[in-house]
Amino acid sequence: MRLAAENISVRLGAREVVGDASLVIEPGEIVAVIGPNGAGKSTLLKALAGLLAPFAGRVLLNGEDVSGLDRRRLARAIAYLPQERAVGWPVSVERIVALGRMPHAGPLAQVTPADRAAIDAALSAMDLLGLAMRRADRLSGGELARALLARALAQEASILIADEPTAGLDMAHVLQLFTHLERLAAAGHGIVVAVHDLSLALRHCRRSVLLHDGRILAAGPSADVVTSENLARAFGISARIGKLDDVSIVLAERSLT
């Protein structure tokens, strides 16, 4: 499926948090949304997920306006991982992940073999098989982050929108996550991730969107977006961007302010 934002503006209260943003996520690609704190990344992602209605512009899923789509259909098409990581009750990891199957459940909510397979796959992808029965209140921050991510994966939606999925994850699990996302993209899923580690955007995301003060400052192939000039404008830093052997890295050198 193809997800497109057409000139959307999003207001929270009276403040315009995202202004005139356009963005397309094609099947098979990972798009990074980058930018400083408060640039409007989370708001843009929520609008893409159909959770915030844009004040102007439209979000289209395969050409259909998401605001008019049936909720369950939307839930099967777009999985969204919020930045907020709260679990209201100390349920087990497996049950958290099983919630991802809700949009697929029949009226009696019986577990089908497809549900079981999706849950197992998600647990395994996030390296949680050993923690499946652990209660949410007995997880570390990174483990909880992986459990919540696994919920979004179990949803088996064509499009995955993840707000800072790498926050709190150790290096090994960040790698594992992106390996899995690349596998999903190769299988035809469209993926949007907000990330702060710009090296990840360079290495794993085909395209990047740089937000600054709610506006898209630059968008395109990641290598064209993550440049010293853009980073200076958006973040107010002087950054070194280069390669260590074959691997792209971004190093913030000093603040320009």
Binding site: K46, A49, L51, R71, L74, A79, Y80, L99, G100, R151
Partner: peptide, 8 residues
């Protein structure tokens, strides 16, 4: 947000 994303 997650609840809404799950169709609630």
């Amino acid at each position: 947000d997650a609840a809404q994303n799950l169709g609630a």
